[in-house]
Design a protein around this nucleic acid. Structure first.
Lengths: 203, 203
DNA sequence: TTAATTTCGTAATGGTTATTACGATAACGA
DNA sequence: TCGTTATCGTAATAACCATTACGAAATTAA
Protein backbone atom coordinates (compact mmCIF):
# COMPACT_ATOMS: atom_id res chain seq x y z
CA UNK A 1 0.00 0.00 0.00
CA UNK A 2 0.99 3.62 0.28
CA UNK A 3 1.54 6.18 -2.41
CA UNK A 4 3.23 4.90 -5.52
CA UNK A 5 6.47 6.32 -6.87
CA UNK A 6 6.04 9.02 -9.49
CA UNK A 7 9.42 8.60 -11.16
CA UNK A 8 11.28 5.73 -12.77
CA UNK A 9 14.03 4.56 -10.44
CA UNK A 10 16.15 3.07 -13.19
CA UNK A 11 15.88 6.22 -15.24
CA UNK A 12 16.91 8.34 -12.28
CA UNK A 13 19.91 6.08 -11.66
CA UNK A 14 20.95 6.41 -15.29
CA UNK A 15 20.73 10.19 -15.00
CA UNK A 16 22.87 10.15 -11.86
CA UNK A 17 25.34 7.85 -13.59
CA UNK A 18 25.79 10.37 -16.37
CA UNK A 19 26.41 13.21 -13.94
CA UNK A 20 28.98 11.19 -12.00
CA UNK A 21 30.61 10.18 -15.28
CA UNK A 22 30.98 13.80 -16.27
CA UNK A 23 31.86 15.46 -12.97
CA UNK A 24 33.17 12.65 -10.82
CA UNK A 25 31.95 11.70 -7.36
CA UNK A 26 32.94 14.84 -5.50
CA UNK A 27 32.45 17.19 -8.44
CA UNK A 28 28.80 16.16 -8.71
CA UNK A 29 26.63 17.99 -6.20
CA UNK A 30 23.33 16.65 -4.99
CA UNK A 31 21.73 19.60 -6.74
CA UNK A 32 23.29 18.43 -10.02
CA UNK A 33 22.01 14.92 -9.42
CA UNK A 34 18.45 15.85 -8.53
CA UNK A 35 18.19 18.25 -11.45
CA UNK A 36 19.47 15.63 -13.88
CA UNK A 37 17.09 13.05 -12.48
CA UNK A 38 14.20 15.49 -12.46
CA UNK A 39 13.44 14.49 -8.90
CA UNK A 40 13.43 16.30 -5.56
CA UNK A 41 16.18 15.67 -3.08
CA UNK A 42 14.32 13.50 -0.54
CA UNK A 43 13.06 11.32 -3.35
CA UNK A 44 16.61 10.44 -4.40
CA UNK A 45 17.59 9.78 -0.82
CA UNK A 46 14.66 7.47 -0.18
CA UNK A 47 15.32 5.58 -3.40
CA UNK A 48 19.09 5.11 -3.19
CA UNK A 49 20.35 6.20 0.21
CA UNK A 50 23.06 8.81 0.55
CA UNK A 51 25.41 10.10 -2.10
CA UNK A 52 27.97 7.34 -1.69
CA UNK A 53 25.32 4.62 -1.95
CA UNK A 54 23.93 6.30 -5.04
CA UNK A 55 27.38 6.39 -6.61
CA UNK A 56 27.99 2.72 -5.89
CA UNK A 57 24.71 1.78 -7.55
CA UNK A 58 25.57 3.99 -10.51
CA UNK A 59 28.95 2.27 -10.74
CA UNK A 60 27.32 -1.16 -10.71
CA UNK A 61 25.00 -0.05 -13.45
CA UNK A 62 27.94 1.28 -15.42
CA UNK A 63 29.67 -2.07 -15.34
CA UNK A 64 26.49 -3.84 -16.35
CA UNK A 65 25.27 -1.51 -19.05
CA UNK A 66 28.44 0.02 -20.47
CA UNK A 67 31.39 -2.19 -19.58
CA UNK A 68 29.58 -5.39 -20.45
CA UNK A 69 31.82 -5.81 -23.49
CA UNK A 70 34.77 -6.56 -21.24
CA UNK A 71 33.73 -9.98 -19.86
CA UNK A 72 32.30 -10.68 -23.29
CA UNK A 73 35.64 -10.05 -24.98
CA UNK A 74 37.30 -12.58 -22.72
CA UNK A 75 35.37 -15.26 -24.57
CA UNK A 76 37.25 -14.63 -27.80
CA UNK A 77 39.26 -17.67 -28.94
CA UNK A 78 42.72 -16.08 -28.87
CA UNK A 79 44.35 -13.67 -26.47
CA UNK A 80 45.09 -11.32 -29.32
CA UNK A 81 41.44 -11.12 -30.24
CA UNK A 82 40.52 -10.67 -26.59
CA UNK A 83 42.82 -7.69 -26.23
CA UNK A 84 41.92 -6.28 -29.63
CA UNK A 85 38.24 -6.41 -28.72
CA UNK A 86 38.75 -4.74 -25.39
CA UNK A 87 40.88 -1.96 -26.82
CA UNK A 88 38.59 -1.28 -29.73
CA UNK A 89 35.40 -1.30 -27.68
CA UNK A 90 36.96 0.96 -25.07
CA UNK A 91 38.06 3.47 -27.68
CA UNK A 92 34.50 3.54 -28.89
CA UNK A 93 32.86 3.82 -25.48
CA UNK A 94 35.23 6.51 -24.23
CA UNK A 95 34.34 8.74 -27.19
CA UNK A 96 30.70 7.75 -27.67
CA UNK A 97 29.03 10.49 -25.63
CA UNK A 98 30.38 14.00 -26.24
CA UNK A 99 29.07 15.25 -22.90
CA UNK A 100 30.81 12.55 -20.86
CA UNK A 101 33.93 11.30 -22.56
CA UNK A 102 36.28 8.89 -20.88
CA UNK A 103 35.35 6.27 -18.31
CA UNK A 104 33.34 6.50 -15.11
CA UNK A 105 35.67 3.92 -13.59
CA UNK A 106 38.55 6.36 -14.06
CA UNK A 107 37.01 9.81 -13.82
CA UNK A 108 34.65 8.86 -10.99
CA UNK A 109 37.29 9.43 -8.32
CA UNK A 110 41.01 9.49 -9.03
CA UNK A 111 42.03 12.07 -6.47
CA UNK A 112 39.98 13.98 -3.94
CA UNK A 113 39.42 14.87 -0.34
CA UNK A 114 39.83 12.29 2.40
CA UNK A 115 36.05 11.89 2.64
CA UNK A 116 36.03 10.31 -0.80
CA UNK A 117 38.50 7.61 0.13
CA UNK A 118 35.91 4.80 0.32
CA UNK A 119 34.64 5.63 -3.13
CA UNK A 120 38.16 5.85 -4.50
CA UNK A 121 38.91 2.46 -3.06
CA UNK A 122 35.77 1.01 -4.59
CA UNK A 123 36.91 2.16 -8.01
CA UNK A 124 40.40 0.80 -7.47
CA UNK A 125 38.95 -2.54 -6.46
CA UNK A 126 36.68 -2.61 -9.49
CA UNK A 127 39.63 -1.92 -11.78
CA UNK A 128 41.65 -4.61 -10.04
CA UNK A 129 38.90 -7.16 -10.61
CA UNK A 130 38.84 -6.36 -14.30
CA UNK A 131 42.59 -6.68 -14.55
CA UNK A 132 42.58 -9.96 -12.63
CA UNK A 133 39.97 -11.44 -14.94
CA UNK A 134 42.08 -10.45 -17.93
CA UNK A 135 45.15 -11.92 -16.30
CA UNK A 136 43.32 -15.20 -15.75
CA UNK A 137 42.28 -15.25 -19.38
CA UNK A 138 45.88 -14.73 -20.45
CA UNK A 139 47.04 -17.53 -18.19
CA UNK A 140 44.55 -19.79 -19.92
CA UNK A 141 45.93 -18.61 -23.25
CA UNK A 142 49.41 -19.57 -22.16
CA UNK A 143 48.23 -23.04 -21.20
CA UNK A 144 46.58 -23.37 -24.58
CA UNK A 145 49.79 -22.42 -26.36
CA UNK A 146 48.24 -19.16 -27.46
CA UNK A 147 50.95 -17.26 -25.60
CA UNK A 148 54.63 -18.14 -25.23
CA UNK A 149 55.60 -19.82 -22.00
CA UNK A 150 57.96 -16.97 -21.26
CA UNK A 151 55.06 -14.47 -21.26
CA UNK A 152 54.37 -12.74 -17.97
CA UNK A 153 50.59 -12.63 -17.92
CA UNK A 154 50.35 -10.27 -14.97
CA UNK A 155 52.60 -7.77 -16.70
CA UNK A 156 50.74 -8.13 -19.97
CA UNK A 157 47.42 -7.58 -18.26
CA UNK A 158 48.86 -4.56 -16.47
CA UNK A 159 50.02 -3.22 -19.80
CA UNK A 160 46.61 -3.56 -21.40
CA UNK A 161 44.88 -1.93 -18.44
CA UNK A 162 47.43 0.86 -18.49
CA UNK A 163 46.63 1.61 -22.11
CA UNK A 164 42.92 1.51 -21.30
CA UNK A 165 43.28 3.98 -18.45
CA UNK A 166 45.46 6.24 -20.54
CA UNK A 167 42.91 6.16 -23.32
CA UNK A 168 40.24 7.30 -20.88
CA UNK A 169 42.37 10.33 -20.04
CA UNK A 170 43.08 11.06 -23.68
CA UNK A 171 39.40 10.76 -24.54
CA UNK A 172 38.59 13.37 -21.92
CA UNK A 173 41.30 15.53 -23.41
CA UNK A 174 39.34 15.54 -26.65
CA UNK A 175 41.10 12.84 -28.66
CA UNK A 176 39.06 11.34 -31.46
CA UNK A 177 37.99 7.74 -31.64
CA UNK A 178 40.28 7.33 -34.64
CA UNK A 179 43.32 8.49 -32.68
CA UNK A 180 42.47 6.18 -29.81
CA UNK A 181 42.13 3.32 -32.24
CA UNK A 182 45.56 4.14 -33.62
CA UNK A 183 46.87 3.99 -30.05
CA UNK A 184 45.13 0.65 -29.62
CA UNK A 185 46.71 -0.68 -32.82
CA UNK A 186 50.12 0.42 -31.64
CA UNK A 187 49.58 -1.29 -28.30
CA UNK A 188 48.49 -4.46 -30.03
CA UNK A 189 51.25 -4.45 -32.62
CA UNK A 190 53.68 -6.07 -30.22
CA UNK A 191 51.33 -8.66 -28.86
CA UNK A 192 53.13 -11.98 -28.47
CA UNK A 193 51.35 -14.60 -30.55
CA UNK A 194 51.67 -18.32 -30.08
CA UNK A 195 54.52 -20.52 -29.00
CA UNK A 196 56.03 -20.46 -32.47
CA UNK A 197 57.18 -16.85 -32.12
CA UNK A 198 58.05 -16.27 -28.48
CA UNK A 199 59.42 -12.79 -29.16
CA UNK A 200 58.92 -9.58 -27.33
CA UNK A 201 57.50 -11.11 -24.20
CA UNK A 202 58.03 -9.21 -21.01
CA UNK A 203 60.24 -10.03 -18.05
CA UNK B 1 59.95 48.83 3.39
CA UNK B 2 57.26 47.29 5.55
CA UNK B 3 57.28 44.13 7.57
CA UNK B 4 59.21 41.29 6.02
CA UNK B 5 57.68 37.92 5.23
CA UNK B 6 58.05 35.36 7.97
CA UNK B 7 57.76 32.27 5.76
CA UNK B 8 59.58 30.99 2.71
CA UNK B 9 57.40 31.49 -0.34
CA UNK B 10 59.04 28.74 -2.33
CA UNK B 11 58.68 26.32 0.52
CA UNK B 12 55.00 27.18 0.91
CA UNK B 13 54.46 26.65 -2.80
CA UNK B 14 56.13 23.27 -2.60
CA UNK B 15 53.85 22.31 0.29
CA UNK B 16 50.79 23.39 -1.67
CA UNK B 17 52.06 21.45 -4.68
CA UNK B 18 52.19 18.28 -2.61
CA UNK B 19 48.65 18.75 -1.34
CA UNK B 20 47.32 19.35 -4.85
CA UNK B 21 49.25 16.32 -6.07
CA UNK B 22 47.60 14.15 -3.47
CA UNK B 23 44.06 15.50 -3.39
CA UNK B 24 43.65 17.28 -6.68
CA UNK B 25 42.54 20.86 -7.21
CA UNK B 26 39.04 20.59 -5.85
CA UNK B 27 39.81 17.94 -3.27
CA UNK B 28 42.37 20.21 -1.63
CA UNK B 29 40.72 22.70 0.70
CA UNK B 30 42.32 25.97 1.62
CA UNK B 31 42.52 24.63 5.15
CA UNK B 32 44.58 21.70 3.85
CA UNK B 33 46.84 24.06 1.98
CA UNK B 34 47.45 26.49 4.82
CA UNK B 35 48.09 23.67 7.28
CA UNK B 36 50.59 22.03 4.94
CA UNK B 37 52.33 25.32 4.32
CA UNK B 38 52.30 26.22 8.00
CA UNK B 39 50.92 29.62 7.13
CA UNK B 40 47.70 31.46 7.91
CA UNK B 41 45.09 31.89 5.21
CA UNK B 42 45.56 35.58 4.36
CA UNK B 43 49.30 34.98 4.06
CA UNK B 44 48.77 32.44 1.29
CA UNK B 45 46.33 34.74 -0.46
CA UNK B 46 48.67 37.70 -0.37
CA UNK B 47 51.57 35.60 -1.63
CA UNK B 48 49.88 33.70 -4.45
CA UNK B 49 46.40 35.09 -5.04
CA UNK B 50 43.35 32.87 -4.95
CA UNK B 51 43.20 29.10 -5.07
CA UNK B 52 43.29 28.85 -8.84
CA UNK B 53 46.32 31.12 -9.10
CA UNK B 54 48.04 29.09 -6.41
CA UNK B 55 47.36 25.89 -8.32
CA UNK B 56 48.71 27.32 -11.55
CA UNK B 57 51.92 28.32 -9.83
CA UNK B 58 52.16 24.89 -8.23
CA UNK B 59 51.68 23.32 -11.65
CA UNK B 60 54.43 25.46 -13.14
CA UNK B 61 56.72 24.42 -10.33
CA UNK B 62 55.80 20.80 -10.90
CA UNK B 63 56.85 20.97 -14.52
CA UNK B 64 60.09 22.70 -13.60
CA UNK B 65 61.08 20.61 -10.60
CA UNK B 66 59.57 17.20 -11.26
CA UNK B 67 58.86 16.88 -14.97
CA UNK B 68 62.17 18.36 -16.01
CA UNK B 69 63.30 14.95 -17.22
CA UNK B 70 60.86 15.15 -20.09
CA UNK B 71 62.45 17.91 -22.19
CA UNK B 72 65.80 16.48 -21.15
CA UNK B 73 64.91 13.06 -22.54
CA UNK B 74 64.11 14.62 -25.91
CA UNK B 75 67.82 15.30 -26.30
CA UNK B 76 68.65 11.60 -26.50
CA UNK B 77 70.19 10.61 -29.84
CA UNK B 78 67.55 8.10 -30.91
CA UNK B 79 63.77 8.11 -30.64
CA UNK B 80 63.92 4.78 -28.89
CA UNK B 81 66.16 6.16 -26.18
CA UNK B 82 63.97 9.23 -25.91
CA UNK B 83 60.88 7.14 -25.26
CA UNK B 84 62.70 4.69 -23.02
CA UNK B 85 63.97 7.56 -20.90
CA UNK B 86 60.55 9.15 -20.60
CA UNK B 87 58.85 5.90 -19.68
CA UNK B 88 61.45 4.88 -17.16
CA UNK B 89 61.69 8.25 -15.47
CA UNK B 90 57.90 8.50 -15.27
CA UNK B 91 57.60 5.09 -13.68
CA UNK B 92 60.09 6.25 -11.10
CA UNK B 93 58.49 9.63 -10.43
CA UNK B 94 54.97 8.26 -10.21
CA UNK B 95 56.02 5.85 -7.46
CA UNK B 96 58.69 7.96 -5.74
CA UNK B 97 56.56 9.50 -2.99
CA UNK B 98 54.27 7.08 -1.17
CA UNK B 99 52.01 9.89 0.01
CA UNK B 100 51.39 11.31 -3.46
CA UNK B 101 51.72 8.65 -6.12
CA UNK B 102 50.88 9.32 -9.72
CA UNK B 103 51.19 12.64 -11.50
CA UNK B 104 49.94 16.11 -10.59
CA UNK B 105 49.34 16.73 -14.29
CA UNK B 106 46.81 13.88 -14.27
CA UNK B 107 45.39 13.80 -10.77
CA UNK B 108 45.25 17.57 -10.43
CA UNK B 109 41.89 17.82 -12.18
CA UNK B 110 40.51 15.09 -14.44
CA UNK B 111 36.85 15.52 -13.64
CA UNK B 112 35.09 17.93 -11.33
CA UNK B 113 32.49 20.64 -10.95
CA UNK B 114 32.01 23.28 -13.59
CA UNK B 115 33.95 25.78 -11.47
CA UNK B 116 37.11 23.79 -12.03
CA UNK B 117 36.87 23.92 -15.81
CA UNK B 118 39.62 26.54 -16.25
CA UNK B 119 42.01 24.46 -14.20
CA UNK B 120 41.07 21.32 -16.09
CA UNK B 121 41.75 23.09 -19.33
CA UNK B 122 45.11 24.29 -18.09
CA UNK B 123 46.12 20.71 -17.38
CA UNK B 124 44.86 19.53 -20.76
CA UNK B 125 46.86 22.25 -22.46
CA UNK B 126 49.97 21.36 -20.49
CA UNK B 127 49.63 17.73 -21.49
CA UNK B 128 49.09 18.73 -25.12
CA UNK B 129 52.28 20.78 -25.10
CA UNK B 130 54.25 17.82 -23.83
CA UNK B 131 52.78 15.55 -26.44
CA UNK B 132 53.45 18.07 -29.20
CA UNK B 133 57.08 18.40 -28.19
CA UNK B 134 57.44 14.63 -28.29
CA UNK B 135 55.75 14.53 -31.67
CA UNK B 136 58.18 17.12 -32.99
CA UNK B 137 61.08 15.07 -31.71
CA UNK B 138 59.73 11.99 -33.49
CA UNK B 139 59.35 13.93 -36.72
CA UNK B 140 62.99 14.85 -36.45
CA UNK B 141 63.79 11.19 -35.88
CA UNK B 142 61.96 10.30 -39.04
CA UNK B 143 63.93 12.86 -41.02
CA UNK B 144 67.11 11.44 -39.58
CA UNK B 145 66.19 7.93 -40.63
CA UNK B 146 65.74 6.92 -37.02
CA UNK B 147 62.10 6.06 -37.71
CA UNK B 148 60.61 4.48 -40.82
CA UNK B 149 59.02 6.88 -43.27
CA UNK B 150 55.73 5.10 -42.83
CA UNK B 151 55.67 5.95 -39.12
CA UNK B 152 52.84 8.20 -37.99
CA UNK B 153 54.59 10.40 -35.45
CA UNK B 154 51.40 11.91 -34.07
CA UNK B 155 49.97 8.48 -33.38
CA UNK B 156 53.22 7.28 -31.86
CA UNK B 157 53.39 10.31 -29.58
CA UNK B 158 49.76 9.76 -28.61
CA UNK B 159 50.59 6.17 -27.78
CA UNK B 160 53.49 7.10 -25.53
CA UNK B 161 51.45 9.74 -23.73
CA UNK B 162 48.60 7.28 -23.31
CA UNK B 163 50.92 4.82 -21.61
CA UNK B 164 52.24 7.61 -19.40
CA UNK B 165 48.76 8.69 -18.33
CA UNK B 166 47.74 5.11 -17.70
CA UNK B 167 50.85 4.57 -15.61
CA UNK B 168 49.88 7.54 -13.47
CA UNK B 169 46.53 5.90 -12.77
CA UNK B 170 48.14 2.56 -12.03
CA UNK B 171 50.66 4.17 -9.72
CA UNK B 172 47.82 5.70 -7.72
CA UNK B 173 46.21 2.28 -7.63
CA UNK B 174 49.25 1.03 -5.79
CA UNK B 175 51.28 -0.57 -8.56
CA UNK B 176 54.97 -0.94 -7.84
CA UNK B 177 57.71 0.75 -9.77
CA UNK B 178 58.80 -2.66 -11.01
CA UNK B 179 55.38 -3.38 -12.50
CA UNK B 180 55.27 0.03 -14.14
CA UNK B 181 58.70 -0.62 -15.61
CA UNK B 182 57.44 -3.92 -17.00
CA UNK B 183 54.58 -1.97 -18.59
CA UNK B 184 57.11 0.47 -19.99
CA UNK B 185 59.18 -2.37 -21.43
CA UNK B 186 56.13 -3.83 -23.07
CA UNK B 187 55.26 -0.46 -24.56
CA UNK B 188 58.79 -0.04 -25.85
CA UNK B 189 59.01 -3.56 -27.25
CA UNK B 190 56.90 -2.49 -30.23
CA UNK B 191 58.91 0.58 -30.99
CA UNK B 192 59.84 0.85 -34.66
CA UNK B 193 63.57 1.22 -35.05
CA UNK B 194 65.33 2.65 -38.06
CA UNK B 195 64.53 2.49 -41.76
CA UNK B 196 66.03 -0.94 -42.05
CA UNK B 197 63.15 -2.58 -40.18
CA UNK B 198 60.00 -0.66 -41.00
CA UNK B 199 57.76 -3.10 -39.18
CA UNK B 200 54.90 -2.50 -36.83
CA UNK B 201 54.48 1.14 -37.68
CA UNK B 202 51.06 2.60 -37.21
CA UNK B 203 48.51 3.73 -39.80
C1' DT C 1 -15.46 6.14 4.32
C1' DT C 2 -11.75 5.36 7.54
C1' DA C 3 -7.11 3.95 8.86
C1' DA C 4 -2.62 2.88 7.61
C1' DT C 5 1.24 3.65 4.82
C1' DT C 6 4.22 5.54 1.46
C1' DT C 7 5.89 9.40 -1.49
C1' DC C 8 5.70 14.13 -2.37
C1' DG C 9 7.69 18.96 -2.14
C1' DT C 10 9.12 22.80 0.93
C1' DA C 11 12.17 24.43 3.71
C1' DA C 12 15.31 23.99 7.33
C1' DT C 13 19.80 22.12 9.55
C1' DG C 14 24.59 22.07 10.63
C1' DG C 15 28.90 21.93 8.56
C1' DT C 16 32.40 23.39 5.14
C1' DT C 17 33.80 26.16 1.31
C1' DA C 18 36.77 30.17 -0.58
C1' DT C 19 37.63 34.71 0.40
C1' DT C 20 38.53 39.12 3.34
C1' DA C 21 38.03 43.16 6.93
C1' DC C 22 40.44 44.58 10.45
C1' DG C 23 43.44 45.70 14.16
C1' DA C 24 48.00 44.46 15.90
C1' DT C 25 52.89 43.79 14.84
C1' DA C 26 57.18 44.61 12.73
C1' DA C 27 60.53 46.64 9.53
C1' DC C 28 62.54 50.53 7.18
C1' DG C 29 63.47 55.68 5.74
C1' DA C 30 63.72 60.19 7.57
C1' DT D 1 61.55 58.76 17.36
C1' DC D 2 58.00 59.15 14.02
C1' DG D 3 55.46 57.89 9.79
C1' DT D 4 54.89 54.76 6.18
C1' DT D 5 54.20 50.32 4.58
C1' DA D 6 53.75 45.48 4.42
C1' DT D 7 52.65 41.18 6.92
C1' DC D 8 50.73 39.09 10.79
C1' DG D 9 46.70 36.33 13.03
C1' DT D 10 41.78 36.51 14.41
C1' DA D 11 37.51 36.23 13.13
C1' DA D 12 33.80 37.26 10.08
C1' DT D 13 31.11 36.67 5.53
C1' DA D 14 28.27 34.71 2.14
C1' DA D 15 27.63 30.81 -0.63
C1' DC D 16 27.35 26.08 -1.03
C1' DC D 17 27.48 21.25 0.70
C1' DA D 18 24.93 16.72 2.05
C1' DT D 19 21.21 15.43 4.70
C1' DT D 20 16.54 15.41 6.79
C1' DA D 21 11.94 17.14 9.57
C1' DC D 22 7.63 17.83 8.47
C1' DG D 23 3.05 18.31 6.69
C1' DA D 24 0.28 17.63 2.44
C1' DA D 25 -1.05 14.32 -1.11
C1' DA D 26 -2.00 9.87 -2.74
C1' DT D 27 -2.65 4.95 -2.66
C1' DT D 28 -4.39 0.54 -0.67
C1' DA D 29 -6.86 -2.51 2.89
C1' DA D 30 -10.73 -2.84 5.64
Amino acid sequence: MGRKREFDVDQALEAALCVFWRKGYEGASYTDLTQAAGVERPALYSAFGNKEALFRQALARYYEHYLDYFPEALKQPTSREVVADILRASAELYTRYPDRKGCLGIHGALAGSDDAEPVRRALIDARAIGEASLCDRLERAKQEGDLPETANCADLAAFVMTVLHGMAVQARDGFSRETLEAVARQALSVWPSGRSTPSGASS
